Amino acid sequence: LTVQLGNLEWHFDNPEQALKMAEELAKRYQLKVEIDNGTLKFK
């Protein structure tokens, strides 16, 4: 699973870790998370 923020990307083997990080980033920057083809992206 990949977490993508702008041109930064983090790759996780563990989806739970990816979701946890995505939630933290979304909270911190007040963004919405969307999943696009196995990639978590922020809007």
Rank of each mutant, 00 (worst) to 15 (best):
L25C: 07
I35T: 05
E9G: 04
E16A: 13
A26K: 04
T39Y: 14
N7C: 14
L8T: 08
L25H: 02
T2Y: 06
V3E: 02
A26N: 03
G6V: 04
G6S: 04
L5H: 04
K20P: 01
F12L: 03
K43F: 14
A18N: 00
V33W: 15
I35A: 06
L31N: 00
V33S: 02
L8A: 07
F42Y: 03
L31I: 06
A22G: 04
F12W: 04
E23H: 12
Y29G: 01
E23S: 11
E23T: 12
K27C: 11
F12P: 01
I35E: 07
A18I: 05
A26G: 05
M21L: 14
T2M: 08
V33R: 00
N7P: 11
Q17H: 12
Q30F: 11
L31K: 01
V33Y: 15
Q4E: 05
F42V: 14
L5Y: 10
L5A: 03
L19W: 15
L31R: 00
K20D: 05
E9W: 13
L25G: 00
A18D: 00
E23V: 12
D36G: 08
K32D: 06
E16L: 13
Q17C: 11
E24I: 15
L31W: 08
L1P: 04
N37R: 07
D36K: 09
I35Q: 08
I35C: 11
T2V: 11
L25N: 00
L8H: 12
G38D: 06
A22E: 00
A22I: 06
E23D: 09
Y29C: 12
L8Q: 11
P15L: 13
K41G: 03
N7T: 12
L25F: 11
T2C: 14
E9V: 15
M21G: 01
E34P: 01
P15Y: 14
F12A: 02
L40K: 00
W10V: 05
K27D: 06
T2S: 07
K41N: 04
N7D: 10
E24L: 15
E9S: 14
Y29M: 05
N37W: 04
F12I: 03
D36L: 10
W10F: 07
G6C: 15
D36M: 11
F42P: 01
E23Q: 13
V3W: 03
L1E: 02
I35N: 10
G38R: 08
L25E: 00
L1G: 03
M21S: 03
Y29Q: 01
L19C: 07
N37D: 08
D36W: 11
H11W: 10
